[in-house]
Write a protein that binds this DNA or RNA. Sequence first.
RNA 1: GGGCAGUUAGCUCAGUUGGUGGAGCACCGCCCUUACAAGGCGGGGGCCACAGGUUCAAGUCCUGUACUGCCCACCA
Length: 895
Amino acid sequence: MGEPLQKGYEPHDVEAKWRKHWEETHVFTPDPDAPGEPFSIVIPPPNVTGALHIGHALNLTLIDVLCRHARQKGKNVLWIPGTDHAGIATQNVVERAIALEGADRQSLGRWAFVKKIWEWREDYGHRILDQIGALGASVDWKRLRFTMDDGLSAAVRKVFVSLYNEGLIYKGDYIINWCSRCHTALADDEVEHEQGKGNLWRIRYHLADGAGHVTVATTRPETIPGDTAICVHPEDMRYHHLIGKSAIVPVLGRNIPIIADSYVNMEFGTGALKVTPCHDHNDWMLGKKHDLEFIQVIDENGLMTAESEIYASLPKHECREKIVADIEAAGDLEGVEDMVHAVGHCYRCHTVVEPHVSAQWFVAATKLAPAAHAAVPELTQIFPEVWLKTYYHWLDNIRDWCISRQIWWGHRIPAWTCTSCDALTVAEETPDHCPKCGAAALVQDADVLDTWFSSALWPFSTMGWPDDSRDFERWYPTSVLVTGFDILFFWVARMMMMGLHLTGKTPFRHVYLHALVRDSAGQKMSKSKGNVIDPLEMINKYGCDALRFTLTAFAAMGRDIRLSEDRIEGYRHFVNKLWNAARFALMHLREMPDPVPLENVSGLHNQWILHRLETVKKQMDQALSEYRFNDAAQTGYKFLWNEVCDWYLELLKPDIGLGAQSEDPQRAAAARFVLWTVLRETLILLHPIMPFVTAEIWQALPGAQNEANTVSDLAKERYPAFRPGCLRETEARHMELIQEVIVAVRTIKAELNIAPSHKARLLLRPVDAAQAALLEQNRDMIITLARLESLTTASDTQIPKASASAVVRGCQVIVPLRGTVDLGGELQRLDKELAKLEKEIINTNKKLLNESFTSRAPAEVVAREQEHATKLLETITTLQALKSRFTEALAEDAE
RNA sequence: GGGCAGUUAGCUCAGUUGGUGGAGCACCGCCCUUACAAGGCGGGGGCCACAGGUUCAAGUCCUGUACUGCCCACCA
């Protein structure tokens, strides 16, 4: 027996206690040789120096729900935690930190700077891990990984070498996106395009033969020194005669060819395009295609190169001003207009990126993509399905992936150049001599790999691949990848490509893409907007379970989550409700009740709640297996609050000696065991979503322990077995009648301003003998919950004229009115009810009189409508009779 | 420019295969009933964005329009 429950739920103490317990007992460290179907998930690794944000909280909560549920279902569950070295992001953070000390990485040097980052990681790397723990994530801490661990780094080198040897990694000159602040290449999808104001200049290029000029339009005049052609559309009659001739580059005076390519848009600008292959992606393509000259005029610092002659060493924006002025002075500027166009920015630091030609390493993604396309949905299924098309489209239009980054923090590219013979060696281990010429002087490539390269290996590198590993054998491929849709391309697609190529298997059977968490106005949360909701602050204020329940309840498929603090506060009430319900139950379960056969238990309320419990067990299980997290949460919520608390706990009070009735030992025994069962199984059902509060209640539940002398840990408990014998549709419907009668009485009281505590007399006139028996058998429930003085059930009961009335499933519900009550109120009530019913019967009859409905709709639907109409008519007739009696009473009263 | 979502109660959102629309919060009234006032009971509130179409029957399927959001590609 554990500790009894305190008056109020104190999340902090409880959370700390269970976190510690779970970490110390290693319940989430699985044994690969243990039985059970394998179930595995790898964490989407957060930045090692990062802090937990609400997106992580959502992600981790959903994964945790799946893992805890899978454990309950008897699966052998592995959830690998870990962090990502996050190249550029981390380097930037540390650079900013050392800048405060007046240092910079250049002056420190590579070795010392990287050492600094490792130190930084030692200091701050624990923070994010601690925060993952604070969310209650049931990860296996013994298998904690970091993308720059020895094992994972070895995997990275192995993959690099093997792809290189297969020709799937190559080095080449290419135009890339260059961030002159981060000083590194950026992948296409690391560039964010934003609309910005600019100018469009129209500039004359004189023809070399002196026969006039051609006018081009450009937004970037500073690239003019790098022009190596003018391009027009082959079918553009305005320029047809110029194709093959030469033009002169303004100011510099070089001759360049005029070429034709259908890439050119005749409608835009003047229809004549200046081609600068080194400083524009499309111009690069044209340059390659038409074998143009490549002249680089802007360097990696954003300064003009010597090739730009008189503009050499000017910053590019100054060059722009100067060259425009020079052209204008020469009389060759035809005009300037304002225009809005998209400009690329670095996704990390927001500097404008510059297309830049340099030697880079590439993965031949074009060759890996087809397999990743073909694997879906056969081998890997994507949820929700709307992302399928997006996934396919991206893979079908993929370009080779630039994987080299000119930064210092990351996996160094395992390629060495011989200083004497220039030969390139790619190897897993540092070579001590050049394999070609034997010289010992080898220089390693200065670049590191794109962070996503190591991330792409994460599902198997974390399991010990490429070495023979029991974990890999047992748990790869993983069961499901849970992540945000924003990294479908960055991460998911690349894991698919790498996983398929290297392991021959897709790295996960399912991919569940969850939504983004936005603020209550639908805005993306960001520090600069000041609209972030800090999950740790929420945990602190409302408790972890409240936060987790909120996130789960809002995680509807394919829809963004608009979160606000109010909602978390709201779900805290639910945690509290569970706590209080449990406290009440435990007051009456001082010790383990003696079991009674539940399939044969007596008492309509017992049969009903057990029936509902079975239904909810099935529904929640089903919902989670289909990633309908919100449905699972809502089902649990409604069951506990609206059924267990609002009805069942009240209904069982008479059984256990609360209220007017005297205790019947047999009924009390049954009630206690049913109560114990319902509480016990509800705790299990809610545990994946709310692990802490349920675990705390569980340890106080007598008889929940299954091992002697140990703390009773709900995290180890199995999903409750289904009891088909407890499914009782008929009894559930009978219970609904009782509930409806009770509600009818309550409504009468409320609407006629009769105090709820007023003990009314109630007369019931059942529609038939079966109903009469049912009502009579359950009279205690009605008396207690409707708060009655007396209850008379008989079809021939005299009805006092001054009575309020209602009709429930044909049964007349009569509350005789005495003294102070406002009789006019009852008339209004009856009229309102009758009007509603009449409207309904008109609609139903309209349908039934429609020949095409009765002949074409399924017989079963027609029969249902028919029955509905009959019942409506009966109710109306009865109610009208009651109303006329009541009107007489009013008249008599007036006399 | 191409693609994908969304539009349902005052607010935030559910609504599986078409069969007479739900929840939470907010609102109104009554109640401190011995698990819970972070509560209980009852109530009001919606031509499901708009216009067509399919069907006996449309929030649900189809077409179009409007607005909102996102993704991709970017025209020099």
